[in-house]
């Protein structure tokens, strides 16, 4: 059963989002691609979810909590989380290893591990399509699959990706003959702007990308991966944008889960 989201109302425009060049898919700077989600598409897994935002989609499956296959993995004080990420083509590389580590750390923080001592929770994510914001999509799919598996969580981590863009004049190709100062121009708050949920094309042009996980309970920062040059103040601006987007995402997830449980009770 698939849930389509209602058109997400864009967040109140900040001073940043005015008079910017249009985005390739005509969204506003602080508008998410409408998410879609299917809970429980796989019937042999203990929990599964397919989460997509635009042309980026991930299928996640949860197996467990179950007895560990290797006793080495067992922890007396709580469940052990294992995450495997399969790329949408080719073999897994070092970037998949990094994604696995990030999703694992996020789930370990969110799941009530101490309720399932000496077990292993295995999460497998298959990337189906990738058009930007993959890390956020992986994290959301994984946590929705954990919800679908009925594993207790302290909160729902809501993850969004962002990109910091500097206007074309500053990112223009600098020839090797130009003095070095021209390529290392410092981004200032006035010349750069933040885009929510960037697609691949926008990520390529960006000077920095940020993936931010927000807790559904206290609205604070759970996970953050920023890479690229920015002012510290721009990071805090990004946190505010992420908080707003997380609210919209939470409303969507709540609606999805409610619809799903209504659907299940009808079948019974």
């Amino acid at each position: 059963m698939e849930v389509e989201s209602p058109p997400i109302t864009p967040l109140p425009p900040s001073s940043l989002s005015l008079s910017l060049p249009p985005r390739p898919d005509r969204r506003l700077a602080n508008q998410l691609r409408p998410p879609t989600c299917e809970l429980g598409p796989l019937n042999r897994a203990d929990g599964s979810a397919c989460f997509a935002q635009g042309q980026t989609s991930v299928l996640a499956a949860v197996y467990g909590p179950a007895a560990p296959r290797f006793s080495r993995k067992e922890r007396v004080e709580g469940a052990a989380v294992e995450v495997t990420v399969h790329p949408h083509y080719g073999l897994a590389t070092s970037s998949e290893k990094e994604e696995e580590g990030a999703v694992k750390a996020l789930l370990e923080a969110a799941i009530c591990l101490e309720r399932f001592p000496r077990t292993v929770i295995h999460v497998i994510c298959q990337v189906c399509e990738d058009n930007g914001g993959l890390m956020a999509c992986l994290m959301n799919a994984a946590s929705l699959a954990v919800i679908n598996a009925g594993i207790d969580m302290k909160y729902v981590p809501l993850t969004v990706s962002m990109a910091l863009i500097s206007p074309p004049s500053a990112t223009m190709k600098t020839r090797p003959s130009l003095p070095p100062s021209s390529s290392t121009t410092a981004p200032t708050s006035s010349s750069t702007y933040l885009l929510l949920d960037p697609i691949n094309e926008e990520e390529r042009q960006s000077i920095a990308t940020i993936t931010m996980g927000i807790s559904s309970v206290d609205q604070n920062v759970l996970s953050c991966q920023s890479m690229g040059i920015m002012m510290p103040s721009q990071l805090f601006e990004a946190i505010d944008v992420a908080k707003g987007a997380a609210k919209a995402l939470m409303a969507f997830i709540r609606m999805t889960v409610e619809e799903h449980s209504r659907h299940i009770s009808k079948e019974k």
Partner: peptide
């Protein structure tokens, strides 16, 4: 310049902006 180059926070408890600052 003191500009931020990367900030990685993976698991753990959630942090408010002032702690990150």
């Amino acid at each position: 310049t003191g500009q931020l180059c990367t900030l990685q926070k993976l698991g753990g408890v959630s942090m408010a902006s002032e702690h990150l600052d």
